[in-house]
């Protein structure tokens, strides 16, 4: 028996018939073709599928599409506005907070929830907030920096750029 759902995703309204067992992540990926939301595990552990449902970070692999009826959803595709990157997206780019990019959408959506609740988190609070998101590439170091960048940017503070410091170090010698 299919259920009818009405959802708003990244500002667009959709009405669809869904099977009970259809997970929200598959609704987004397969039906709406919003493939920025990823699936990395089957135990609700990795966080690659994190999206915002009514403003709150949720693992979309652990929610039925049917449960999303009436919800306002935001995915990674909805973060940039009018071609301008969200401060978090910008932070991830500036601070090299991503490598393969697979966990990145989930990281950004979780971080968005964190900054909503706590606009100026400490390193420790950021690391604690990322408990539900695995990254296998970055060792998290630059993800923490990226989120701090976004937090600083939102409060209009000074952002320390890595480049200035780096230029003092030996970087490249012409091989003899």
């Amino acid at each position: 028996m299919a259920t009818t759902i009405n959802v708003s995703v990244n500002g667009k309204k959709y009405q669809d018939e869904v099977e009970g067992r259809l997970l929200l992540v598959h609704y987004l990926r397969d039906k709406l073709r919003l493939t920025g939301t990823h699936v990395g595990c089957d135990t609700s552990s990795c966080g690659a599928c994190t999206i915002l449902v009514d403003g709150k970070a949720v693992k979309s692999c652990t929610m039925l599409a049917a449960q999303a009826d009436g919800a306002t959803i935001k995915t990674i595709e909805g973060m940039a506005e009018k071609g301008k990157l969200h401060p978090l997206q910008e932070g991830f780019k500036e601070k090299h907070g991503l490598q393969c990019g697979f966990c990145t959408p989930g990281m950004i959506m979780t971080a968005a929830n964190l900054l909503e609740d706590n606009p100026h988190p400490s390193d420790e609070e950021i690391r604690h907030a990322l408990e539900g998101n695995f990254c296998r590439c970055t060792g998290y170091h630059n993800i923490v920096e990226a989120i701090k960048y976004a937090a600083d940017k939102s409060k209009g503070g000074d952002i320390e750029h890595a480049d200035a410091k780096e230029l003092e170090k030996p970087l490249f010698e012409v091989p003899s």
Binding site: T35, E77, L85, Q89, F92, F102, T104, D163, E166
Partner: peptide, 18 residues
């Protein structure tokens, strides 16, 4: 130089193609 990555744009906006 620490040139920012050109590939990031697609990954950051959900447009990667896995």
């Amino acid at each position: 130089k620490s040139v920012k990555r050109v590939e990031d744009q697609r990954f950051l906006t959900g447009k990667g193609n896995y």
